[in-house]
Design a protein around this nucleic acid. Structure first.
Length: 994
DNA sequence: ACGTACACCTA
DNA sequence: GTAGGTGTACGTC
């Protein structure tokens, strides 16, 4: 090898794992042999050997080698026994592919290199340094960070899946240090996957900063005393040796004894027939034809070679799994046909929705936003002109400015409008915006100030002009998080009609990918960073409410919001059509804005006396516990501090610690304390009880009265429509979706949620909605039958699994089946089920196996959902809502597994969420048609439950209407294969109604 | 004043 | 094992 040569080193072992998880998982040969990783590997090799110039590497190789790990017994294991100790066995489907990939390498006429006692990384390091020494360029095909320490101006890495080359600047950009410092950085940070310990509390950012300051690891350890942060200093001093050990583990060896020298890696011409024989045997038709064309061979004349398959010791034969190979990728196959997907509608300018979407994205990403062009409106004639323009275009961006984030308390300070003058232009780039200040004040907080600033339109006059525009159904109002503005305007006597909400559009398109706040969306779609609120109003102590912001600064900020919102609408609206998601947006999102606004506006009544009495009781009981706890501990301490508590329990008292938290502290979770109590220790039980009491007191009885609105005297929660990945709502300030119900003590809090005089609270909840959804989507005969017959579903499961008759089922057996049923919905793992049931993981694994034997359709459903998620990056509910899981191909196994479980759960949880959303949207009309419009008021939603306030006389009439609306909510979009069941009760308070 | 860790409340 | 929000302690800015 000489200067100018180019050596390619393929990290074969790394590729196998990465390909396995990146590619469709159940790709199999016709005999059932899983070959997804092999296929990806062959395609990559061919691309690098023939078309490397077309990749971001840009050069073709002169020398080439594929490197593999030999076994797990390496020198690292010798110096640190726990190295890679928490690696689990490779997935079953992967086992035979290790051997096949070596066979593939040989079929490509490439050297296949491995050395006992060393990892592939060390061999790569050795070759890379040798090649560099003779002046050759090196490309390491891998994206493993462990190899980044090798990068130099001569040595690059190449991520073949992202087609991305990684050089010195890329390493610095990603890790904050140059490649030669990567070893020290990894020594500090550690690696949970390989079980390299590092130093606790040091992550990549901190490590990079420390190395920047101290130069290298040894200097840092020597001068650790100079570090100001106490905790950090102590950790670095305490774990110095651990860091040195970690450094030894992560530093790659460059002195591995090698059988083949560099010259032996010279790239040989392909042996066409040999390669084709292999590809044919593997049934890689496309690649085979490509190779045949390139080599001028007749593939038909070549016999497939015999493939030797090495299954792992415990793996099953290749012929057992034909059933699951055929029908993968069919998740949610019976989602309703969406016309927008099937029929490509033509838009006005002749482009398809997809083309229009692309055009819009491109033009708005490049359009500069000129914030100096905004207008401040101080004359009624000017406002009239803007309103007239909005009427002419039929489209207006709208935003309110207030003095509070709470729409029930907020007073209007001003509003802004944005107008697109040339809507006929497909790029729609002409946007102008204006701010109308109404109640800005003078003198920022000074004692003389507080008067109304001059030269503002009177709110009364301006709103009189604005009202007809906002209420005109022929003018589309576009806002970001409209529910806020809707409520504010409603409290000023204006009911917005015809609207779009850019936040919800983004949510429908991208749930799971990003958050949907305006600043995020603007940076993403418009390449524009809007003025931050805190830059105009300050924050914290020096922060002021918007009415004290100087009008000129306020105008720029406010007008920009309307401008950005309207631009976002132009970008997002066509994407909804292009992606076939318009119906989701229009039926499940947009109409909920006003439904939820009304629910929030109504609020719910609470009895402060009950809460205050409860608070007193809880305080007394907690105080009694505190005395006993101090007595048992022998000293006073902060019981609420897990750290101090841990010191008492596991240090002073010497109790055996159970598990550790991820920061290395002893866990003091309820589970651990319960276990200690079971061993006979007195203190842990008291702590658990104390925690329960203080939790109830601080979070509920003490906090809730603070949320009572000064005028309505009711509690108005705020629902978020766009903060979950699955489609559920969330509730905050206060969260009324987590009011206690499980314990008798907790339920007392529910008695404080009361109906107004002359009314009842009516609670209606779906019974087992998620299991019913599962029975529907996975189409499980026994589950469908059980639900159709109204049988106890957990007992039925137990009966199927354990062969116990449903009659006289022991409660413990049923409990286990119930945990399994929940586990299935949550994307079951043996680990989780074992935890839940306090049993061994192996036993939990047996249960799961048994369950899948009894309900093979569930396993198929889970597999196909995973495969769909991996292929597309998202999953769908039965109505077509998407939940994205961009990390599902993560190379971190636990991260990946987590995403897989979430992706399995999302269609179930999300479909249930969609069903109750549909019920909510329909509910008001149904009640109105029954003449109950004002007499039955929907107040709260708790995921599978709706709470209404109903006039006493109307309870009997309302109940069946509510129940039937909820039970029929999936219709007509989806005809469920199992009936939905709703239970309802009415009572004076929420506890009795539930 | 703000962010993170931990614990714990709900479906 | 899924999806959320909030309170307390404790750290850093």
């Amino acid at each position: 090898m000489k200067k100018g040569d180019h050596l390619f080193l393929i990290d074969g072992s790394g590729f196998i794992f990465r390909a396995f998880h990146a590619l469709p998982p159940l790709t199999r040969k016709s005999d059932g042999l899983p070959i997804g990783a092999v296929s990806g590997f062959c395609n990559m090799l061919w691309k690098l050997l023939t078309d490397a110039r077309d990749t971001s590497v840009g050069v073709t190789p002169t020398h080439f080698a594929v490197i593999f790990d030999y076994s797990s017994k390496t020198f690292r294991k010798e110096i640190y026994d726990a190295y890679k100790a928490n690696r689990s066995a490779p997935p079953e489907e992967l086992v035979p592919q290790f051997g096949l990939i070596r066979q593939a390498t040989r079929a490509f006429n490439l050297p296949c290199i491995e050395t006992e006692g060393f990892e592939a990384d060390d061999i790569i390091a050795t070759y890379a340094r040798q090649a560099e020494a003779v002046g050759a360029d090196v490309t390491i095909v891998s994206s493993d960070k462990d190899l980044m320490q090798l990068v130099t101006p001569m040595v690059h890495m190449y991520d073949s899946m992202k087609d991305k080359q990684i050089g010195v600047p890329d390493v610095i950009e990603k890790w904050g240090v140059s490649p030669e410092k990567m070893i020290d950085l990894q020594a500090l940070v550690g690696d949970s996957v390989d079980n390299v310990p590092g130093i606790p509390g040091i992550g990549p950012k901190t490590a990079a900063q420390l190395l920047e300051e101290f130069g290298d690891l040894e200097s840092l350890l020597a001068r650790a005393g100079e570090i100001k942060q106490v905790k950090r200093r102590e950790n670095i001093q305490a774990f110095a040796e651990q860091a040195r050990l970690s450094r030894q583990l992560v530093e790659l060896r460059t002195d591995v004894p090698l059988e083949l020298d560099l010259g032996a890696l010279l790239l040989e011409p392909q042996d066409g027939p040999k390669l084709i024989g292999f590809l044919k045997a593997m049934e890689f038709g496309t690649l085979m034809r490509r190779v045949a064309a390139a080599c001028d061979c007749d593939a038909n004349a070549i016999e497939p070679v015999t493939i030797e398959v090495e299954w792992g010791a415990e793996a099953r034969g290749p012929d057992l799994d034909a059933a699951s190979s055929a029908d993968t990728g069919e998740a949610a196959a019976d989602a309703p046909a969406n016309p927008a997907k099937a029929v490509v509608a033509k838009s006005t300018d002749g482009a398809t929705p997809a083309e229009l979407a692309d055009t819009r994205i491109a033009s708005f990403a490049n359009a500069k936003i000129d914030t100096t062009s905004y207008v401040t409106i101080r004359d009624i004639e000017v406002l009239d002109d803007w309103i007239k323009a909005a009427r002419e275009t039929g489209l207006v961006g709208f935003d309110t400015e207030t003095n509070s984030l709470d729409p029930m308390q907020a007073e209007l300070v001003g509003f802004s409008l944005a107008i697109a003058d040339n809507t006929g232009n497909p790029s729609g780039l002409e946007v102008r915006a204006a701010y109308v200040p109404l109640t800005h004040k003078t003198g920022v907080g000074d004692l003389l100030g507080g008067g109304l600033a001059e030269n503002q339109l009177s709110p009364r006059q301006a709103l009189d002009r604005l009202k007809p525009l906002l209420e005109d159904p022929s003018v589309l109002k576009v806002a970001q998080n409209l529910k806020f503005d809707y409520l504010v305007m409603k409290r000023h006597g204006i009911t917005v009609k015809s609207y779009d909400d850019t936040m919800l559009m983004s949510y429908v398109l991208d749930a799971g990918k990003t958050t949907h706040g305006m600043d995020t969306l603007s940076e993403r779609w418009l390449n524009h960073k809007p003025i931050a609120f805190k830059d105009v109003a300050g924050s914290g102590k020096s922060g002021v409410t918007f009415d004290f912001v100087d009008i000129d600064r306020a105008a720029t900020y406010a007008a920009e919001d309307a401008d950005v919102t309207l631009r976002l609408w132009m970008v997002l609206k066509p994407q909804l059509a292009a992606m076939g998601l318009t119906r989701i947006y229009e039926r499940l999102e947009r109409p909920l804005v006003e439904v939820l606004a009304r629910m929030e506006e109504r609020g719910i009544s609470i009895d402060r006396q009950i809460l205050s009495r409860l608070s007193g009781e809880l305080a007394q009981k907690a105080a009694a516990f505190e005395d006993e706890i101090y007595e048992l501990a022998g000293e006073k301490f902060t019981i609420g501090s897990p750290k101090q508590l841990g010191d008492i329990l596991f240090g002073k008292m010497g109790l055996p610690g159970g598990s550790k938290t991820k920061t290395g502290q002893w866990s003091t979770s309820a589970q651990v304390l319960e276990d200690l109590a079971a061993e006979g220790a007195a203190l842990p039980r008291k702590i658990v009880d104390w925690r329960q009491l203080t939790k109830l007191k601080s979070t509920y009885t003490d906090a809730l009265p603070g949320y009572v609105h000064p005028e309505t005297k009711r509690v108005h929660t705020s629902y978020s429509l766009a903060s979950t990945t699955t489609g559920r709502l969330s509730s905050s300030e206060p969260n009324l979706q987590n009011i206690p119900v499980r314990t008798a003590e907790g339920r007392k809090i529910r008695t404080a949620f009361i109906a107004s005089p002359g009314h009842k609270l009516l609670s209606a909840d779906y019974s087992q909605i998620e299991l019913r959804v599962l029975a529907h989507v996975a189409d499980i005969p026994q589950l469908r039958q059980a639900f159709a017959d109204g049988i106890d579903i957990h007992a039925m499961t137990a009966s199927e699994m354990f062969g116990v008759p449903v009659e006289g089922m022991p409660s413990d057996i049923r409990r286990r089946a119930k945990a399994i049923n929940f586990g299935i919905i949550y994307g079951i793992s043996a680990f989780g089920l074992a935890n839940q049931l306090s049993i061994e993981r192996s036993e939990a694994g047996d249960y799961i196996k048994k369950y899948f034997e009894r309900f093979p359709g569930i396993r198929d459903y889970m597999d196909s959902t995973k495969a769909f998620a991996r292929e597309h990056g998202y999953v769908e509910t039965i109505f077509g809502r998407r939940a994205h899981y961009p990390e599902i191909k993560s190379s971190n196994p636990s991260m990946r597994a987590f995403n897989e479980r979430a992706a399995i759960n999302a269609p179930i949880q999300g479909s249930a969420a969609d069903i109750i959303r549909r019920a909510m949207v329909k509910m008001e009309k149904v009640l109105g048609d029954a003449g109950l419009g004002e007499r039955v008021r929907m107040l709260l939603q708790v995921h599978d439950e709706l709470i209404f306030e109903v006039e006493d006389a109307d309870v009997e009439k309302a109940m069946p209407i509510i129940v039937s609306t909820m039970e029929q909510a999936a219709m007509p979009a989806i005809s469920m294969k199992v009936p939905l069941k709703v239970d309802a009760r009415a009572a004076a308070n929420w506890d009795e109604a539930h």
